[in-house]
Amino acid sequence: MQALAESEVRSVFANAHDAELEQVSLPVGFFVTEWAHLDAFGWRDPRIPSRGYLVTEIDGEPVGIVLRAADRTGSHHRAAICSLCHTQQPGDQVLLFSARRAGAAGERGDSVGTYICSDLACQETVRLGRPPAPSEVVPTVREIERIEGVAQRTRAFVADVVTG
């Protein structure tokens, strides 16, 4: 993913109103983000905990969406699977996030939702694994497939929000 400056990040949200864009808080580590190793950049707003952001590239251009986390209800002792990274997590670490659709559909109140890791760190999650042995510097085929899978599902979700 191409590196983005703070002003560029604020300008890519397809489903945000001006007031929402003014409220965007970047994560603490934003300025040390290793963009070249990411297919998407997701984070929870440090000032507005119910809000999250997801930025990816579609056709070589950065596109972002504003997400809203559903209120936690019910039992969280069960496991859940993130729809983006397909990682099984404890139930309290996967949340339903919804995004207002961009354009006229969003103005009518249309939205789309999916279950995502509560910290929106799917990109890092699929890259975590066993530490490579000295002779094992190349990711395995399975690891590459997981990384490509989360990238494709993230782009598809963002595209669905943007274009419906």
Rank of each mutant, 00 (worst) to 15 (best):
S75G: 11
L21K: 04
E22G: 02
L21P: 00
L38N: 04
D39A: 13
C117F: 03
L26Q: 01
Q152Y: 08
G129E: 06
G129L: 10
A16Q: 00
D71L: 15
R10E: 00
C122Y: 02
R78H: 11
G129D: 04
L84A: 14
F157G: 01
T56G: 03
E136C: 07
E148M: 04
Q93H: 13
E22I: 02
A133V: 09
Y53N: 01
T114S: 07
P139Y: 05
V137N: 11
H86E: 14
V55A: 04
V63R: 12
T87P: 05
E148S: 11
E136M: 10
I65E: 03
G129Q: 05
G129K: 09
V63W: 03
R108C: 15
L120K: 02
A80T: 01
G149T: 07
V94L: 07
A156L: 11
E57P: 03
D119M: 10
A3K: 08
L67N: 00
V158W: 07
G60S: 01
P134H: 06
H37E: 12
Q88C: 15
F31Y: 15
G52A: 09
A3F: 04
C82Y: 10
T87A: 15
T33H: 03
E143H: 13
A121D: 11
D59R: 11
V112M: 11
L95T: 10
A14S: 08
V24H: 00
G52W: 05
A70Q: 14
R47F: 04
A19M: 01
R100K: 06
G164V: 02
A16I: 00
I144Y: 03
Q23L: 12
R153C: 07
I58A: 11
D92Q: 09
Q152L: 13
E8Q: 10
L26K: 01
R44Y: 00
F41E: 00
I65D: 02
H77V: 13
A80P: 02
L38M: 06
R47I: 05
A14T: 02
Q123W: 09
H77S: 09
E20F: 00
V138W: 12
W43N: 09
G64E: 12
R101P: 02
A14E: 06
H17W: 05
E8W: 02
L120M: 07
G74E: 11
R146E: 14
E148P: 05
V55I: 15
R127K: 15
T125M: 11
A133M: 12
H76Q: 08
R130W: 07
F41S: 03
R108T: 14
V24F: 00
S135T: 14
V161I: 15
V138Y: 14
R78N: 12
V28Y: 13
E107P: 05
P139S: 08
S7N: 07
F97M: 08
G64Y: 09
V161A: 09
G113I: 05
D71Y: 10
F157N: 03
G113K: 01
G103I: 01
I65G: 04
Y115D: 09
F157Q: 05
D110M: 10
R142F: 05
G91W: 03
V12P: 06
T73P: 00
V138G: 04
G42S: 03
E20I: 00
T125R: 15
A70N: 14
Y115F: 08
A105S: 09
R72H: 13
G64L: 06
